[in-house]
Design a protein around this nucleic acid. Structure first.
Lengths: 331, 331
DNA sequence: TTGTACGCGTTATCAA
DNA sequence: TTGATAACGCGTACAA
């Protein structure tokens, strides 16, 4: 038996069975010695540990352990194209919170840039592409019974939904602008999506007429371009409401490039409440709890992995008035 | 046998064995019918497919398949804190390329924000935290024989290294500044690290004296603060060389805030060659092939997973002169 | 073309 | 406290 170890050609990684036989104990005892599931005498444990060390056994093979447990320890997060998804610091802040919370629970986070292809075993999936309403992998995941947590997304059956109160936030912002005397308001939009629709509804609670600019993505350059074209086409407004602070920053930059004073000539508001240190004006914005949103998503994932029941979550937002909005210019 | 399917209480996910018995074929035949490894008669195949469909079998269990194959289909990428790592568009551009290349190969990308803990089975790991020279997980990964690809990092035994020619790039930039008459040059640094050391060496090929500012992180706010403190302390230079374009942007913003003209009063250079649309001056910078760097890392991963030999890679960079550098001011 | 049987490396159940 | 044995779900030589 021992000699066969020498004739074996390529170095096979040691397994727990090797450790057990080297320590002269049974496989199950060796397993217990590591997992601590069952009590093991100190003497045997030490012999097992010594055997493991001398063989260079690095702990249970995760692949085998996963099959046994029926879990992979990996949670997927659908984000679309990475450079697009994470260009906005708001998305990053949420991702950070998700990652931290899952990390603490010993779970890994796998990026899913693509629509299809779920070749990797996933214990759950977070869907966070606000701005897209369909998803190729949805059916497969549902069929596989993979828990699904949707952040600011469409209402999908079987999924847990984490959302923020878009509408109330947008309405508060609208009232702020109305109080400042604004009557001609435009909004720079994202693609048609759940957040977009809710926020527009919030604006229309106050302003019956809202000009629509875009759609644009949530980054400085695209926002700049979209609002630039709009202004070029002869449109105007005393206030522009954006769907993210990054968009708002783009509008500020473009306004200044055209010699417009902010907020003297045009008030500009954002959404999210992120820190944009390079912008020399503090944006008026709707602050959303980005970290809490991420943690809520992660907690929902953990609960659903454990088979617990989860409630949908809608987080509150609040208006933060900065220097980018002011009284409507007198005509 | 059949009746036992009805008494079974909780709905167990169907397995290939269930499909096989439902189709009245053996397990291996059912397997072949899907994998196509061995020829199977059309009639049997259809019966198997029909059985799978009616049972709602969604394909091979990835967990079992992984154990069988000895692979997880997941590649880890160590990046440190996410919001820090991806605040810089340069990092994002690389991540994007890595992701795309791995995706095409059917591999998933797992974020590793933490130092330790590798509970998840990984086929390979990319280390991309330039700025840190040690790593808690290193020993464990080496012991586990997990292929390691280091991007712009320290020379670790057993790892494949992907790097760019920091030194030549920095030297080219230094010569450009020297040609413009600059003699008093400062550099805003990152933490002590391989790239940092190489780039400083490049600068010192041209300037014997280089003032050192920092260390700072690679984001606008931190750079702004670091150079601000330095100016406040009474230091000065006619040119500031930064370690990233984002840093350079921060220095531009801070310079202007202090009434300094760029490049009239101070020339400012970056590194990376990313697009910063909100900055109204095109940075003079050392352009590195971010996408190619990511693809090279991904290719190295694929090769090493297949057990192939890999060579280290050093990618070329080039100087791009923009409007942020100009003749040194006459004293 | 189809079936048998074993192995992947663990963990869990049960008996000793 | 320890050990034998059975899953976990699938691939794949090998035999039929």
């Amino acid at each position: 038996m021992l000699s066969s170890d020498f004739v074996t050609g390529p170095v096979r990684a040691p397994t727990l069975a090797d450790v057990a036989s080297a320590a002269g104990v049974s496989l199950s005892t060796a397993s217990h010695a590591f997992s601590g599931t069952k009590p093991v005498s100190t003497a045997t444990r030490e012999r097992v540990l010594a055997a493991a060390a001398s063989l260079g056994w690095t702990g249970p093979n995760p692949l085998a352990r996963n099959l046994r447990r029926g879990r992979s320890g990996v949670v997927g997060i659908a984000v679309g194209q990475l450079s697009t998804a994470f260009r906005d610091p708001a998305a990053l802040a949420m991702l950070d919170a998700v990652s931290e919370e899952l990390d603490a629970a010993g779970l890994g986070l796998l990026l899913m840039p693509d629509d299809e292809q779920v070749g990797v075993p996933l214990d759950a999936v977070i869907y966070d592409i606000c701005g897209r309403e369909t998803w190729g992998a949805y059916d497969e995941l549902v069929a596989r019974d993979v828990p699904l947590v949707v952040v600011e997304g469409p209402a999908w059956p079987g999924a847990t939904h984490i959302d923020i109160d878009h509408r109330t936030g947008a309405a508060a912002l609208a009232r702020h602008l109305h109080d400042l005397g604004h009557r001609r308001v435009a909004t720079l939009t994202l693609e048609a999506s759940h957040p977009q629709r809710e926020r527009e509804a919030g604006l229309r609670e106050v302003f019956t007429d809202v000009d629509v600019i875009g759609p644009s993505a949530s980054d400085v350059a695209t926002a700049q371009e979209a609002v630039g074209l709009w202004w070029d086409a002869g449109h105007a407004a005393t206030a522009v409401v954006c769907q993210s602070d990054v968009q708002a920053a783009g509008v500020v930059v473009e306004a200044r490039r055209r010699g417009l004073d902010v907020p003297g000539d045009v008030s500009i508001a954002g959404f999210d409440g992120v820190d944009l240190p390079w912008l020399d004006v503090e944006l008026t914005t709707v602050v959303q709890p980005l970290g809490e949103k991420g943690r809520a998503a992660a907690r929902a994932v953990l609960a659903r992995i454990d088979g617990e029941h989860t409630e949908d979550v809608v987080l509150p937002v609040h208006l933060r008035v900065g220097g980018s909005t002011g009284p409507a210019p007198t005509p």
